[in-house]
Each structure stands twice: as C-alpha cells, then as structure tokens.
Design a protein around this nucleic acid. Sequence first.
DNA 1: TTGACATGCAACCAATTAGTTGCATATAGA
DNA 2: TCTATATGCAACTAATTGGTTGCATGTCAA
Lengths: 119, 119
Amino acid sequence: MSDVFAALADETRRALLDRLFNKNGQSLTELHHGLAMSRQAVAKHLHILETANLVSVHWQGREKLHYLNPVPLGDIVHRWVGKFEEVRIEALSDFKQQMESASNPSKNSKPQEKRHARK
Amino acid sequence: MSDVFAALADETRRALLDRLFNKNGQSLTELHHGLAMSRQAVAKHLHILETANLVSVHWQGREKLHYLNPVPLGDIVHRWVGKFEEVRIEALSDFKQQMESASNPSKNSKPQEKRHARK
DNA sequence: TTGACATGCAACCAATTAGTTGCATATAGA
DNA sequence: TCTATATGCAACTAATTGGTTGCATGTCAA
C-alpha cells in the first residue's frame, strides 16, 4: 500500500505511467528517450513501479518491455480512498459547518502571533 | 498532486487520517495519544497532511483541532486514477493476452541468469 | 565471431525525510 | 497571578531517496 502511494508520489514516475498509458509495452531505452536523466535513473524508477506492481514486464530477447498494470490503482480506490469518498458529501457540509459556525468566530485562526524572540 | 501522494505514502499519516475518520476534529495531543513517537513527530506529520490539504485546522483557544478534508482524495480519483481505471477491463485482457501469447513463450522471463562474477 | 545495442549491478553523492531534544510562547483555570 | 497544559520553532541526526558514473553481461545481426 505504501509502495503504491510512494511510487505515485514522484512526478517522473507518473510521467512514465502516462507514457505507458499512451503506448503500452515500451522498453527501457524507449521510455528513457527524451527524459533529462540517465538511463539508470529511469531504470530505477521503473523498478520502483514494478515493485509497487504498477508495471509488469515481459522479456523479449534483449528487450524488457513494460506494461501498465492498473490493478493497484483500483485497489487504492476501493480499499482506501473509497472509504473517505463515501462520506464526501456529508463530510463537506459537516466540515463547512464546523469551520464556519465555530464557537467563537473571532478565534478562527492562529491564537496570537507567537513572536519567537529567541534573540 | 505529488504532495497528496507523498502524504499518503506514510503509514503513520494514513493512520492519522483513519483516526480523524473515526473521530473528526481532534487536537494534536489527542491524536498523539497512543502513538509510539514524540508529539513533535506527530505535529510534523499533521503539518504535511495540512500542506497536502488533506487536513484542515481550526483553532479553539489553545487547541488546534484537525478536520479531515476528503477533497484531494476525490481529485486523485477523478483527475488521475480514473483515467487508468477507465481502461481497466480492456487493459486487463490486453495485458493477459500480451503476457501469455508473447512471441516466444519460452523466453517469458529473464533472459539467461546474468551471473555477475565480479570476483 | 564480432561489434553494437539493451540491460543490470555496484559504488558513490547530495538532498530530503522522519525522528529526536530543548526551549519558548499562549491559553485556561485555580 | 501562577501553574499546568497545548502548541510552535530550531537544531541536530540517521536513514532514505534520486541521481550519477563505470563496467559487466546477454542478445542480435552482419
């Protein structure tokens, strides 16, 4: 679970998934093309995606082809995000209500500026 | 976007969101209770959740109450995961097909063990 | 068989992260 | 007004991360 979120937390890795979305089954060299980093850096990113099970590979001769695996994304939604989504509408109104009609409107931000005169 | 995924990539932070799911509007001290780390560590985690907009706060006297904000989760689903989910069924069959009916079944894993005899 | 190409492994480095401790400031209440 | 409670800020540290370079191995094709 952490693996999937951590894998998705990196812009480069999301870009790689996007590229696979547009053209599935690309090799490392192909995916590396146009990216401003070394091939090894890309290989590392792909390995992280592989470990998170977001990408599966298939060796074809000397080429390692990468395929998108959307299953973990579905898992995230259904096993984790969905839970919070379920109460989205309710939570939104609750939230707004709590924020706005709080006991004392004038205290609605930080207390008094805590000036840290650590001089 | 990265902020949200990065925030969710940590088990402690997901646990904090879970606790807020069960009881919304808790203070730092309350959320810290029972966790095996310092109060400041928890404060840092909460700040990360706040930055990712997953948690909103409301000051009440000397207490800082934390509220779950499910909006970014919805954004993730709709703006990112959904795209891949859309093709899930298709991709699944595609994927299976590609994996199984690949040109040469006997080459379906790593080439030859590359024994790195770097001795 | 011999290059050229595709990939992997390992060592290294800088920046970030997750945690700590110490102390300062704000508020509540006796 | 004094004390306990709630929080914040800063400095420090160890581990992780994202990147590099160098080189070894495996495969294809002339």
